[in-house]
Amino acid sequence: MPVDPDPHRDPRSAAAADDTVAPYDPVSPADRGAALDAIRAAFPALAWESSQWIDEGWDHVVVMCHGCRGADSLGHRDLVFRFPTDEQALARLPHEAAVLDHLSAGVDAAIPRYTHVPPDGGFAGYPLVYGDRLTPDLLRSLPTTDRTMIAGQLGALLTALHGADTSVPPLDRVPDSYQPENLDFVRGIVANDLPAVFTEDEMRTAREICDEVAALQSTLLPRVLLHNDVYVRHLYWDARTSPGRLGLIDFTDMCLGDPAVDFAELYEYGPRFVDEVLARYVGRIDETFLDRAWAYQRFAGLYMIVGHLYYGEETWEYARATFDRCRSPRRPLA
């Protein structure tokens, strides 16, 4: 799928922008004025040289503070503060922080680890996960050694996540997959809104995608800890370290479900990359694994269309290109 300009570019390689959300309640993406005040109030011994406002997320807005100093910086030069924009994301934030703290010691890739959590809640911050957004163009431009490292680190990270013991705290409170609710929601939009913008052939494809995912939901499948949103906007590559280091951000939608879900949107990088990651993954794989991943990728493409129509998220061109890329029922082969 095409990608938007990268707002999360490594401050060591690009200049930061400027800007500014209210603590203790979900914030509006338009409510910029209160964000820096909330950070200052919670961490009075924190100062910064510049700040950047990012509102591309579906359930959070982000304030990035660059050039941080003072006792409340805890020695970090760049901090990311996330402000939930709905009640559900707000309620999940403390648990997300606890889970990431639990996971961090067992993974080599960079993942967020919350260091700045106000006592009254409302938002939380962590040291920036450095790197450049891992777009398909960036991956293609890298030398073979880097591409191999990325596949290896991502395979190892997914192995660690999917192998985590979900019976122990705080993983025992990770919810089951939201996919059944999402499917019901998508079916409603398909029935009521898509006929105005889709051809009859496209409508058949949309209904087919929903039926395929419904069939998978009625199948007994492995149930593991999922990131549940592994795609281009959440993957980063820091080539300025030696060796380079992969980063994965935004664990808001983590849940328990089919491990194939976390491979679905890797198809944006092409089937060869999916195969390379899978070759370095140690988990419960069977002959249907990649077919399931492709089914979930098709559902993600349809969800992009729904997100545009219902929430106003993404541009029509972005959503349309995503859907068109994964319309075929045939899984692409390397």
Rank of each mutant, 00 (worst) to 15 (best):
H66D: 11
L93M: 15
V168G: 01
L128E: 11
P7C: 02
D176P: 11
Y281H: 04
A15T: 10
D18V: 15
E202C: 07
P44Q: 13
G57D: 05
D132V: 10
P84Y: 00
D37E: 13
L333A: 12
D176I: 12
D172R: 08
A160Y: 07
C210W: 00
R292W: 00
E265A: 07
T288H: 08
A42T: 09
T322A: 13
A71W: 06
V277S: 03
R233T: 03
S51N: 08
A206H: 02
D176Y: 09
E313H: 14
C68H: 12
G155K: 05
Q179W: 02
A124C: 15
S328Q: 01
Q179Y: 02
P143K: 03
R223F: 06
W237A: 07
G125K: 14
T315M: 03
A239H: 06
D229Q: 06
E313R: 14
L46V: 14
V168N: 03
T241A: 13
P180L: 04
Y267E: 03
D146L: 00
V3Y: 07
G188S: 12
A38W: 07
E202L: 03
L266E: 02
I189Y: 04
D120G: 10
N192S: 13
L36V: 15
S218F: 01
D120S: 13
E287M: 07
R280D: 05
P180N: 04
V117R: 11
